[in-house]
Every structure is written in structure tokens, then in C-alpha cells.
Amino acid sequence: MVYISINHKVKEFVIYIGIFWFYKNELIARKIAVNELKPDEIGMVDSPFEHITEWEVRSIYLPDFKELVSTEYQQLPRGRVIYSNQTKKATVYMDGSLFTEKYKAQLINYFKLTTCPVIWRKDSHYKVFKY
């Protein structure tokens, strides 16, 4: 969390973490505020959300994308946002196809990452699985 004093008022900026997918350039995501969770033993804060559960059990893509009912969670580009309390940086792990300024801007906006440095990383866990 970052605190900024403006005209003697303290304004709190909350950073969010969570998971996401992109479909037809639209963000499908679930987030939680960093300050609602406890960091692990090395100061990392990760959301409790799992891609498989949010996709296959909770159908996170509904009602907007009914055509995705027969898809599996690993068929679309996806990723995860985590946060380090020690470095005060967010790390976004995602499929390599998402490394464009357009996608990054959507993620920064949705997860409110404007008040901390962001590290962008590819991760084989989030590579799109093609059938």
C-alpha cells in the first residue's frame, strides 16, 4: 500500500492481485486487495484464486462469453499478478502473447498497479495449451 499526502489529507491507494485471461481483447479476471491477505514467509502475497476453479467451477467468463462454455481454462492466454511486501513491486506472470502495451495497460488499470513498479514475466504455467 502507498500513502500520499494531498493538502494534509492522506489518500490510500490499494493494489490488487489475482488471476486473468484475455479473450477477444477483453479482460476476464478476478482480484483481491493485497491488504486483505497475509504475506508468506518471504514476503510474497498471492491470491487464493486458481485458474481451473474459476474457469471450470465458477464459470468466470459468464454471462458475457457463453461461447466459452466448452473450452478449458488453459486454451486462452492467461496469467497471475502477485505482490512483494519486501520490494513493494508487483509481478505479472503471463503467456508470451500478452506482452503488448495494450494488454499491459488493461492489467495495470484493473489491478490498480499505477502506484508500484511492475515486473512482467513469461511463465510456462501460463502458456496457451493448443489441442
Rank of each mutant, 00 (worst) to 15 (best):
Gln75Met: 09
Phe22Met: 08
Leu107Met: 04
Ile52Thr: 08
Ser47Val: 08
Ile17Ala: 10
Val2Trp: 09
Pro48Glu: 04
Glu56Ala: 02
Trp120Ser: 01
Phe22Lys: 09
Gln74Gly: 03
Gly79Pro: 00
Ser5Ala: 15
Asp40Glu: 07
Ser124Trp: 06
Lys130Thr: 15
Ile119Leu: 14
Met44Leu: 15
Ala90Gly: 11
Met1Ile: 11
Ile17Val: 15
Asn109Gln: 14
Ser97Ala: 12
Pro77Thr: 04
Arg58Glu: 10
Thr53Pro: 04
Asn85Asp: 06
Val118Met: 10
Lys127His: 12
Ser70Pro: 08
Ile82Asp: 10
Gly79Asp: 07
Gln74Arg: 05
Ala33Phe: 00
Ser124Pro: 00
Tyr73Thr: 00
Gly43Glu: 06
Tyr131Ser: 13
Arg30Tyr: 01
Glu26Thr: 05
Ile6Ser: 08
Tyr83Ile: 12
Ser5Met: 13
Tyr73Lys: 03
Tyr16Ile: 01
Glu67Ile: 06
Glu56Lys: 11
Lys104Val: 05
Glu72Thr: 01
Gln86Tyr: 09
Phe111Asp: 14
Tyr23Asp: 04
Leu27Glu: 02
Lys11Arg: 15
Ala29Trp: 14
Asp46Ala: 13
Pro48Phe: 05
Thr91Lys: 14
Tyr103Gln: 08
Lys89Phe: 03
Leu113Lys: 10
Glu56Phe: 04
Leu27Phe: 02
Glu67His: 05
Glu41Ile: 09
Gly18Asn: 11
Ile119Val: 14
Ile6Pro: 00
Val45Lys: 08
Lys24Ile: 01
Lys38Tyr: 13
Asn25Lys: 15
Val128Cys: 02
Glu50Arg: 15
Phe22Gln: 10
Ala29Pro: 01
Ala105Phe: 02
Ser47Asn: 09
Gly96Tyr: 12
Gly18Cys: 03
Gly79Trp: 06
Lys66Asn: 07
Phe20Asn: 09
Phe20Gly: 03
Val81Lys: 08
Lys104His: 11
Leu98Trp: 04
Tyr61Gly: 00
Asn7Leu: 10
Val118Thr: 13
Phe20Cys: 07
Gly79Val: 05
Gly18Asp: 14
His125Glu: 12
Asp46His: 13
Pro63His: 09
Asn109Ala: 15
Trp55Tyr: 00
Thr71Leu: 15
Leu76Ala: 01
